[in-house]
């Protein structure tokens, strides 16, 4: 009997990537059933898929103590490839197929404005929280504030400024919380905040910045909006890495002398 389980496990491990199609296929199937029969279609199946995915990620993290969610369990390692940044970016790029150029042209300025506002507002919020929790040195405040931008900007800024590893970990966690919150809250808040047009989606992508959060949040809201939000969000991390350790750090240092 244990032999049979071992054989099955070996197949899963040997063919990890291909088996991830089966795993995610089943996940999507479950999500559709839950969406149709339990929520009576009120909650879109992709929103449920995102939630189920997060639950699986939590289970995987608790069981293995690793940082890649369910993908840390050997039999499900392929899920990490399917959901890794390579295929994520590839499918995001593919969503641009069918978008008209005129739409993008009209939104160029909006994209730039929302990106700058997005980085600054996230930084300010993060900085205020850091100060409220008793941080008084400019390096720590800047690092945690940068983490509120995205989980890439936080460690990049922290490393550049020489922040302690505890502070860098907090900044990564803040970024991860942000991206998870964007995934979960967006489909429920979308209508109320007017997230129904390509223009709004471009503003949204610029304000939120987390590529994974934006992609998942918009996918669960209205798939047609994905390319617009993803387009602006993709510039956010770069802009954040540019502004946080430089201009925003200098401003923070002006207020909180070293």
């Amino acid at each position: 009997m244990s032999n049979i389980i071992e054989i099955a496990q070996n197949i899963m491990i040997k063919n990890g990537f291909v088996m991830s199609f089966l795993v995610i296929g089943v996940l999507m199937w479950f999500s559709t059933i839950i969406s149709k029969h339990i929520t009576k279609g009120r909650i879109h199946s992709s929103a449920i898929a995102v939630l189920l995915g997060l639950v699986l990620a939590y289970i995987g993290g608790v069981v293995t103590g690793g940082d890649k969610g369910i993908a840390d369990i050997a039999a499900f390692a392929g899920v990490g490839v399917l959901g890794g940044s390579m295929l994520r970016d590839f499918t995001i790029v593919s969503t641009a197929y069918g978008v008209t150029l005129s739409e993008i042209k009209k939104c160029g300025l909006i994209g730039v404005v929302s990106l700058i506002l997005g980085v600054i507002s996230a930084f300010l919020t993060g900085a205020i929280v850091a100060v409220c929790f008793g941080y008084k040195d400019a390096v720590s405040i800047t690092t945690i504030a940068a983490g509120a931008a995205t989980f890439v900007v936080g460690p990049v800024t922290g490393t550049a400024l020489g922040a302690s590893s505890t502070v860098i970990t907090i900044s990564i966690a803040a970024g991860v919380v942000k991206s998870v919150a964007v995934m979960v809250i967006t489909p429920f808040a979308a209508k109320r905040i007017g997230l129904t047009t390509p223009k709004a989606a471009m503003i949204y992508g610029g304000l939120m910045g987390t590529t994974s959060g934006t992609a998942a949040g918009l996918a669960a809201t209205d798939t047609r909006l994905v390319p617009y939000g993803a387009m602006t969000a993709t510039f956010y991390t770069g802009l954040g890495c540019l502004l946080c350790p430089t201009v925003l750090f200098w401003l923070t240092r002006l207020i909180f002398a070293m």
Binding site: V23, S46, G53, D67, G69, I70, A71, L87, T91
Partner: peptide
Amino acid sequence: MFIPVVAAMTASQNVVQAVSGG
């Protein structure tokens, strides 16, 4: 394939760290 990939992506996030960051 975009949505399935997104589902796989969320399943491989470091959710534990997000919760345990305090």
